[in-house]
Design a protein around this nucleic acid. Sequence first.
DNA 1: ACGCTTGATTGGATCGATCCAAGCACGATT
DNA 2: AATCGTGCTTGGATCGATCCAATCAAGCGT
Lengths: 332, 332
Amino acid sequence: MADVARRAEVGKQTVSNALNNPELLRPETLARVKAAIEELGYRPHTAARSLRRRESRTIGFALERSVAGRSNAVNDRFLHALAAAAGYRLLVFSVDSREQEIERYDELLGEQAVDAFVLDRTGIDDPRHRWLHDRSVPFAAFGRSWSDEDFGDWVDVDGAAGIEAATEHMVAAGHRKIGLLGWPAGSGTGDDRTEGWRRTMKRHGLPVRGLTAAAANRPDAARRAASALLDQGVTAIVAVSDALALGCYDALRERGQRPGADVAVTGFDDSPFAELLDPPLTSVEQPLEGAAAECVRMLVERIADPRRPYGQRLLTPRLVVRDSSGPTAAGA
Amino acid sequence: MADVARRAEVGKQTVSNALNNPELLRPETLARVKAAIEELGYRPHTAARSLRRRESRTIGFALERSVAGRSNAVNDRFLHALAAAAGYRLLVFSVDSREQEIERYDELLGEQAVDAFVLDRTGIDDPRHRWLHDRSVPFAAFGRSWSDEDFGDWVDVDGAAGIEAATEHMVAAGHRKIGLLGWPAGSGTGDDRTEGWRRTMKRHGLPVRGLTAAAANRPDAARRAASALLDQGVTAIVAVSDALALGCYDALRERGQRPGADVAVTGFDDSPFAELLDPPLTSVEQPLEGAAAECVRMLVERIADPRRPYGQRLLTPRLVVRDSSGPTAAGA
DNA sequence: ACGCTTGATTGGATCGATCCAAGCACGATT
DNA sequence: AATCGTGCTTGGATCGATCCAATCAAGCGT
C-alpha cells in the first residue's frame, strides 16, 4: 500500500479511502490513485483488513457427509450460487454429525474465521438455530425452521406449491383420478408436498380417498406402493421425489405399460437423471440459485441490522415438463 | 492472548510457544498454559496469525457452473473430503468459465486469501496448469494433465483399470461376447476407459472387432448405440458411464429383455441413481475421498518443498456389484 | 564457590490495512 | 484583503499473533 501511495504521490490513508470511501476523494486524485493501483497490481491484504476491521467477510457452510439414498446433487447448484455471493467469501467445512457441526461453529467463530453461517437440511427442533441465536451469530437457513419457536431467518422451497403445479398440470391434461405417491407421514417436507396435491384435488372437486400411497426412497418399496395406486385405476401419479417416480416407471413396466403413454408420472427435484430416463421425467425443479441468493441477502441485512425481526421466505419451484406426463391426455 | 498469559502467569510469547512449539516449554508450564487456554476458551485469531505468518493456510477450489448433462454429483463427495483436509481451510469460489477461473486465481493470490489451489475437471492443454506453474503457486489437480508438458501434481482415477474390473467381472461370469459402449473417440477419459476393455478382452483371447459402439450421454443416442451392440449378439455390455448404461436398459426393454437376467450391464461412476434403478446397476465407484486426500497430501508436500519434482498418482476404482450384471451367468 | 553452558522465558518490533484526530489548502464571505 | 469554513489529506496508533534478540534461572564442572 505504501508503494501505491508513493507512486500516486499521496498518503497511505488516501489509498485506503480510494478503496473504501471513494466519494471522499477529489475525482482527479481518485483517478491517480486508481491508476497507481492498476499499474502496480495492488490488492488489499485480506488478513490485515480482517484484523483491523474485526470481520472476516466470510460465510461458513457445513457440508455434511453424503447420506446414502438421499440425493446430494441438490447441494451442487446451491453451493455454486452461494459461492457467487458478492462481497463475501465462502468457507466450506465438513462435518459428520450435528454435534460436530456445532463444535466447528464454535471453533470458527472463536478464531473469527467467519462472520456468519448458512445452514442446510434443517430438521425438527434443529439444535443449530438455538445455539446460533443464543450467541447472536448471524445465520440464514435453507429449509424452514421446523420448531415452534421460530428462530432465525430462513428460505425454503414451497413444496406444496410445486406439487400443486404438477397436479394442475395433470388436471389440465384431462386426468381426474390422480394418485399421490408420498413418503411415510412425519417428515415435514413430505407432508407439505402431499398437502399441495390434496388441496388441488379438492379445489377441482376430485377424489382423494384411497389415492395416496407412501414409501421410502427405495426401488422395491416405491414400486410396490406405485403398484397399489395403479390397482386403484389412477391415470396419473404425482410423486414427491424422483426416486419414487422411478418406482412408478418400474411398476408400469411390470404391467407392460409405458410412463407418459399409458399413465402420466411426475417427480420432484429434477435430479440429473430425470432427463436421462426413457421417457424423460417431468419433474419439479427447485429454485436453488434463488434460495442461495436469498440466504445471502438475508444474511447481509442481518449483519447490517442485527436487531431486525427474523424473516422467512418461500420460493415457488418450477415444473419442468417432459414426456413422462403426456403428451397425450390419458383421461379421455 | 494477553489474558491467557496473565492467567497462566507467563509472558505472551510463552502462550504462543505453547501453541506452536510446545516442546520448548517445561511440561509443567505447558500444562498451566493449556489450562488457562481451556478455561478462557481462547482461540488464536485467524487473521492476525495469517498476517504475521504470511500464509493463510487456506486452499482454494473453483466450483464451475453445473454443466447440464454432465453429472455433478461427483463433486459432492470429493468436496466433502477436501473440506476435511486437516490443517487447512477450504475456500470455495464459483466461476463461469476457464478464463474467469484464472482471473479469480489472480485475485485470491493477490489478496493472499489462499496459499494453494485444487483443480478439477482438467482438460486438454488446460491453461490453468501453466499459469499456476509460471507463478510457482502450489496446486494439485484431480484429473491428469492431458498436455505433453506435464506441469503440476495430479491424481486421477484409473479409468482403464475400472473398466478392466467390470470386464473381468463379466468374463468370470462366463460371458465371452462382451460389448463396449463408449463415448465418441477424442475424450481422454473415454478413450482411457475403452482401452481397459480392449486389453482385458485381448488378454482372455476374446473378440473385440465390431463389439464397440459410441454415443454421447443422451438417452436416445445411448439407446440406439446399445441396440447396435445387441444386434451383434453380445451377452454383456460394459458402458463407460451410468447414463450410457441407462441407454442399455432402454434398448433391452424395447426388445422385451431384462438387464441382469438376459444381458448383463455395468456402468461407471456409481451415480446416486444407480441403486435406485430396477434392477440396481452394477457400476464402477470412483475413489473420490482417496483422490481428495491425495490432492491435499501432495499440496502439503509441495508447500513444504516447492522444488520437489512433480508427482502423479493413479487411483484404482472399485466395482460395486449389483443385480444388473448377474446374478445368473448368461454365457452358458 | 565461581564461572559457564544450556534452556526457558521475557519485552519489543513487526505484518498490512483501517480508524482517529489533527493539519493544510482552497474557495467563499464580509 | 483578511477571516472563516469546508473538504481533502496527513501522520500516528491500533488490531492480535509471531519473530527476534536479550534476559534470567538452573545445572554442571572445576
